[in-house]
Design a protein around this nucleic acid. Structure first.
Lengths: 139, 139
DNA sequence: GTAACTGCAAAATATTTGCATCCTT
DNA sequence: AAGGATGCAAATATTTTGCAGTTAC
């Protein structure tokens, strides 16, 4: 479907276009929420090799195609980056939302990270905000 | 040193006062920053059994004595809770700061989590904020 | 004395690495 | 054809579980 878009995205990042990469990217595009490593292993109709998933995710993070989301329970989640994320320099300027009920994690791209006033000696660079509660579907 | 305080804290939470618990709590009190599981295994003059550390940390989290801090690189960090945290109901109303240079994580208890405006369908419950940059010492 | 806690062994998971093979360019 | 990507095997690392011995109350 968005085959062209996927190919483009990979080529733009100097990555060769391979099956697993296309399929994993497709998973992210079809899922509004964030995915855990295990989601990817499971959700793929055909299963990928664990190692391939590890390596693919790592490559995507390095290229700034996806980013990790820190969660309170320290599960490792990944989500697609917006276009502004350049290679290796992901600045997370949006809010993440984890639903306590359905457990889906959303990137609320339209909600901009608020200002935080720190003690003067601290120099902030990146601000991560993760909100949990009930999402639009479970509310 | 703050031996009495430590004993009190444990007793107040219906935990028996044991050596490992006292020593691990002491580590937290002596360290302004947050600690990872591995820090605790290492920093203790005498090493604890891995398993004991796991179980002790878990117990402390359940009792609301410490809380976990989500970090961008998904390392698992723990820090002391302020007194308001009641058993099993930790509400993280302060900001965490991770220094990119010295790598210490601070609980900025005096910096209150800002308001975040979400799409109306989302009902927020807990807001976690993690800021990274340069801390007061590395600045 | 009893219940709770610890520490060892071992099981279950998760992650990383090496290398031969296959695929993309 | 050459370099990169994959997949298998195996090495490491992390976390959990069971149980017998020890300690706190």
């Amino acid at each position: 479907m968005e085959n062209e878009a996927i190919n483009d995205l990979l080529k733009r990042n100097q990555l060769s276009v391979t099956d697993s990469r296309k399929k994993i990217l497709d998973l992210f595009l079809k899922n509004s929420g964030a995915l855990a490593h295990s989601d990817i292993e499971k959700k793929a109709g055909e299963r990928f090799d664990r190692v391939t998933v590890y390596r693919t995710l790592q490559t995507f993070v390095e290229k700034g195609i996806i980013h990790t989301i820190p969660t309170a329970d320290n599960a490792v989640l990944y989500a697609l980056c917006k276009d502004e994320c350049s290679s290796g320099h992901h600045y997370d300027n949006h809010v993440h939302f984890v639903c306590d009920n359905c457990n889906v994690t959303y990137c609320l791209d339209e909600v901009v990270t608020p200002e935080v006033k720190l003690p003067k000696a601290f120099k902030p660079k990146v601000i991560e905000v993760v909100v949990s509660g009930l999402c639009e579907n479970c509310n």
